[in-house]
Structures are given as structure tokens and as C-alpha cells.
């Protein structure tokens, strides 16, 4: 199998999963597409340099995660924060959103508020179905550390979810 063939096999197998993962991680479909493209280019370059890949799935997720981290790191240049409270998420205030869409928006809103160190394992585990061992491989931490992060991530998710839901209910009742 030539290098190109090997890469095409990887690409067709994982491109959907990787793009979906990045999309949920960043809450930005366009950026996720860019980064997915970059992920596979990085993967190709690594293969071209003769990299040995034992766990292609974890390896690709690791590249994608690193690309996303780089993106998050670079995307936030000097940003002046709004002086007034910016808790209001515009996505939550669309006119008559369906319940599922609203739920999805709330979930995404909550995910965005999670620190990347918690958001990444949570998505890898619950959305992508990776095991804690695989996540440990991707993040370069132990399995126990992954479990602890997962626990904290879930707790944060739960609290933020409650807070946003409660606020929304309060505002809805005020409007009524």
C-alpha cells in the first residue's frame, strides 16, 4: 500500500468523526471544517515523514485536539470584553425554537463555557465514544486523571446547565 493509499483509507474512515468532534468542540462548523482539513494534512505530513501509527483513531483525535487547542490559543488575541454582562447567549433567544434545537443550543452553550481541559475529554468520551485509556493517550495523561477530569467536567456541565436553564425559565416567566 502506497502512502497515498494508506492516507486515503484513513481519511475516508475518520473524516466524518473528526469533523463532527471538532464542530462540537469549537461550536463553529466552518472553523471545524478548516481544522479537520488541517488535521488530515498534518496526518499526511507525519506519515510522509515516516511516523509509525499504532492506534490510528487515537492518533487522529490527538492531532485534531492539538489543532483545536492551537486554534483556541491563537484565536483569542487582544479582545476587549463587553463592559456589561454578556451572559445572554443570542442562540437562546431565537424566535420559537423547537425544543430539540433549544436543547442542543443549550448543550453547546454549556460546552463552550467549559474549560478546554474539561470539554475535550467530555466530548471524546461521551460523544466520540473513546475509552478513558484512549483519551489518556490523546491527552498525554493517566487514566485516573482522565476519570477525574471527566468527573469534574460532568459536574461543571451540570451546574452551568442548571444555571442557564434557570435563567431562561426566569426570563420566560418575566416576559409572560
Amino acid at each position: 500500500m502506497t502512502l497515498e493509499e494508506e492516507f486515503q483509507a484513513l481519511f475516508s474512515t475518520y473524516q466524518h468523526a473528526i469533523t463532527g468532534y471538532l464542530s462540537n468542540l469549537l461550536d463553529d462548523t466552518d472553523r471545524a471544517q478548516e481544522l479537520a482539513q488541517e488535521t488530515f494534512l498534518r496526518a499526511y505530513c507525519a506519515l510522509a515523514r515516516g511516523a509509525r501509527v499504532e492506534h490510528p483513531r487515537a492518533w487522529l483525535y490527538r492531532i485534531a485536539t492539538n489543532a483545536a487547542r492551537d486554534h483556541i490559543r491563537r484565536a483569542r488575541r487582544v479582545q476587549w470584553l463587553p463592559l456589561l454582562d454578556d451572559d445572554r447567549d443570542p442562540a437562546l433567544h431565537q424566535s420559537n425554537p423547537s425544543e430539540a434545537l433549544a436543547d442542543r443550543l443549550v448543550v453547546r452553550s454549556v460546552l463552550v463555557r467549559l474549560a478546554p481541559e474539561y470539554r475535550i475529554p467530555l466530548l471524546l468520551h461521551l460523544s466520540e465514544g473513546l475509552s478513558t485509556a484512549e483519551i489518556g493517550l490523546i491527552l498525554g495523561i493517566s487514566r485516573d486523571a482522565v476519570k477525574m477530569r471527566l468527573y469534574r467536567a460532568r459536574e461543571q456541565f451540570r451546574q452551568i446547565f442548571r444555571a442557564i436553564n434557570g435563567q431562561e425559565i426566569e426570563e420566560t416567566s418575566n416576559e409572560v
Binding site: T19, S23, N24, A36, V107, L126, R158
Partner: peptide, 17 residues
């Protein structure tokens, strides 16, 4: 929580990309 997160959409790469 797991149900909600797992139900998030997972779009693939566009044909152009």
C-alpha cells in the same frame, strides 16, 4: 447528559474540502 451530548450533530467535511 450523555444522551444530550451524544445527540449533538456531527457534520462531515464538505465535498469541496
Amino acid at each position: 447528559q450523555e444522551r444530550r451530548i451524544a445527540s449533538l450533530p456531527r457534520p462531515g467535511l464538505s465535498p469541496e474540502r
